[in-house]
Design a protein around this nucleic acid. Sequence first.
DNA 1: TAAAAAATTTAGACTTGTCTAAAAAAGATG
DNA 2: CATCTTTTTTAGACAAGTCTAAATTTTTTA
Lengths: 216, 216
Amino acid sequence: MNTLAEENYLKSIYHLALSNENVSTNQLAALLKTKASSVTDMLKKLADKELINYTPYQGVNLTVAGEKIAVNIIRKHRLWEYFLVEKLSFKWDQVHDMAEEMEHISSNELINRLDKFMGFPKYDPHGDPIPDCNGLVKTHDLKPVSSITPNQSGTICGVRDHSTLFLQYLEKQSLTIGKTVEVVEIIEFDHSMILQMEGKRIQISREVANNLLIVL
Amino acid sequence: MNTLAEENYLKSIYHLALSNENVSTNQLAALLKTKASSVTDMLKKLADKELINYTPYQGVNLTVAGEKIAVNIIRKHRLWEYFLVEKLSFKWDQVHDMAEEMEHISSNELINRLDKFMGFPKYDPHGDPIPDCNGLVKTHDLKPVSSITPNQSGTICGVRDHSTLFLQYLEKQSLTIGKTVEVVEIIEFDHSMILQMEGKRIQISREVANNLLIVL
DNA sequence: TAAAAAATTTAGACTTGTCTAAAAAAGATG
DNA sequence: CATCTTTTTTAGACAAGTCTAAATTTTTTA
């Protein structure tokens, strides 16, 4: 098996690779809160194990083997988050750090039974898709609220920013997964938006609108 | 917080201290599958942190602070074992290694909620008492089956040996927690015992009788 | 396109936890 | 009680993963 550090690098590379083709040393250093030199060391190690393709100065991407490991860690992370919210009644802003530890519990038998125990959930508490036991990830195509125009409506299905602060803000505004919102007006000055939801009007900043994801 | 290695040392010292007053370096090395020299190094570190009382060549025992940490790890271990058996349908011989990883998940809030979720169980799947959230451990006084005489009976409430092999053997013989057994006869030659349980007779060796625990 | 800036890697060091081999202390034995 | 054996500790080394500082490569910009 792989060490905790290796698993965290693979997971981070996977996440960054969703927006960039090749992941840079500095991006990884920032995400992992470490130094670029430390990242370089680890990249060599992961390349030796053939979990990543690494060309010095050119960034990295995951090999098939590396991606398999990364997806499995993400599967575990999201299933544990689901468990914490659905079974232990935690709020969606409280579960990330705990799941960060739990994702490294090694047994796949355990995680598959947990999956079954919870009824094979498809999405975690933040709306992110839970990879199945074969590593297949259903990527639904979400848009930020900021991309729709007045009179259009959509259902909240995810968030771009997963920070505690943002999640707590959304919770307070009742802007939670499953809610349907309609854009009433966009303020030209600052691109803030007035939404209609369950008969109430809510004003959100452009920043918020960019980080709140919906399906039409 | 403490490192994984530190937590494992504290837990091991706690377990060994149940039978010995002072725990020796070699005992720890054997239990932790490491070398005596490694143990000495760690003991110094734990003594610096005031988690153990350590006098060179004289063995160690836990301070109040050290015992608190050890009991909390054992609480987590046993609650996760209970979870794995009661919620995820694992057998009692399958859960030790998984719980060994899960006991290091740090959040106490998580473990207290898990405790509540499961209805505050008092004993783990092997009959060992689960410490409560204040660190109180109900130590019930169990005797090995080998200590009782013909015509006496008792209820199986625990095991001394927790090995997979022993647990699987007991499972096969239906000698599981909660069953009531009566001693029919003790074979003088090898001290093996013939038990009566649920209308059937079962013969167990002295070795087994020593490791199967009951209350009268 | 040459110099400046940014990104990345290398070199060397540090910490944690482990190891082997040797030294020292404690306990057992004649 | 002196010696032998066992236990424990010390000394020095190593692997993993990190760091700082310096060197190198790539990218940007004038």
